[in-house]
């Protein structure tokens, strides 16, 4: 089940496990931030992590592409496999891992470069384009996938910072998509956006599900309900419940989940 992710004989209806995490512990110095989390994230699915703030959902998300490596005091234990490969193995180069597992952040963070250069950044550093035309194509494809092509195609060389918040976030998604990852991690991608921009990004997430395994951390239960197929509820560093989104929201097993979705804790 874990092997041969590149086999052509794939049945999309049958969900494959993309990421499998077992007994994951995360420590920040002396703080035990993530306790014993087991989760299996499926391919071509939107998985939502929900929970009150400080519950560890973002921290866990960041362990999936080793963004926590940049924080000195952070320590990860346990076993996280992508396509059966342990991402905390010594042989793994986090740079290659992150090319495979892209990330979109809470606040849109376009580089102070042109729109084109923002999107071309990933393909350039990973050497994905053979030549200029190739790169142009990659950029165009990524921008189209980011559902922002029509808005920016006439000003590809204008600075990315000049776009509106929602456009910036979609640009960042296009930027992440351009490196052709297999998993997209999104850390509260809509929390800095207005409702209209939010709905645009949510639509986009739904689109992306066709090609990627998407993991989204969100504050808003409505958003989780709208975009995700699977939902994981985190509380105080524990994964309390994980299952079909519909089931979590209508018929949770754990009383803590119920309290949260009915608004009693949060």
């Amino acid at each position: 089940m874990y092997d041969a992710p590149h086999t052509t004989e794939r049945d999309v209806t049958q969900t494959e496990i993309k990421i499998a995490a077992k007994n994951v512990q995360v420590y920040y110095g002396d703080t035990h931030a993530i306790k014993d989390v087991d989760v299996q994230i499926e391919d071509k699915t939107v998985t939502a992590f929900i929970g009150p703030s400080g519950c560890g959902k973002s921290t866990f998300l960041r362990t999936l592409n080793r963004m926590n490596d940049t924080i000195d005091i952070c320590r990860v234990e346990g076993d996280i496999r992508i396509d059966g490969e342990d991402i905390y193995d010594k042989r793994v180069d986090p740079v290659q891992l992150r090319a495979k597992v892209g990330m979109v952040f809470q606040k849109p963070n376009p580089f102070p470069k042109s729109i084109y250069d923002n999107v071309a950044y990933g393909p350039r550093i990973h050497g994905l384009a053979k030549n200029k035309t190739d790169l142009d194509e990659i950029v165009e494809r990524a921008l189209k996938r980011g559902a922002i092509w029509n808005e920016v195609k006439d000003r590809l060389h204008a600075p990315g910072t000049g776009l509106s918040g929602g456009q910036q976030q979609r640009l960042c998604i296009a930027r992440a998509v351009a490196t052709e990852p297999e998993v997209l991690l999104m850390d509260e991608p809509c929390s800095a956006l207005d409702p209209i921009a939010t709905s645009q990004v949510e639509e986009l997430i739904d689109e992306l599900r066709k090609d990627y395994s998407v993991v989204i951390v969100t504050h808003s239960m409505q958003q989780a309900a709208r975009v995700s197929q699977k939902t994981a509820f985190f509380h105080l560093g524990n994964l309390v419940e994980y299952g079909e989104t519909g089931k979590i929201f209508t018929n949770p097993e754990d009383p803590r989940t119920e309290s949260y979705i009915t608004g009693r804790i949060g």
């Binding site: 992710p5 590149h6 052509t8 794939r10 049945d11 999309v12 209806t13 992508i82 490969e85 991402i87 193995d89 042989r91 793994v92 180069d93 290659q96 891992l97 090319a99 495979k100 494809r141 052709e180 297999e182 066709k210 090609d211």
Partner: peptide, 21 residues
């Protein structure tokens, strides 16, 4: 669902992250 719905325009790396290219 058939292979036709596969995103053929997205070449996957499919490369192992264990081996540095």
């Amino acid at each position: 669902m058939t292979d036709a719905s596969m995103p053929t325009d997205t070449p996957r790396h499919g490369k192992s992250i264990m081996v540095a290219d």
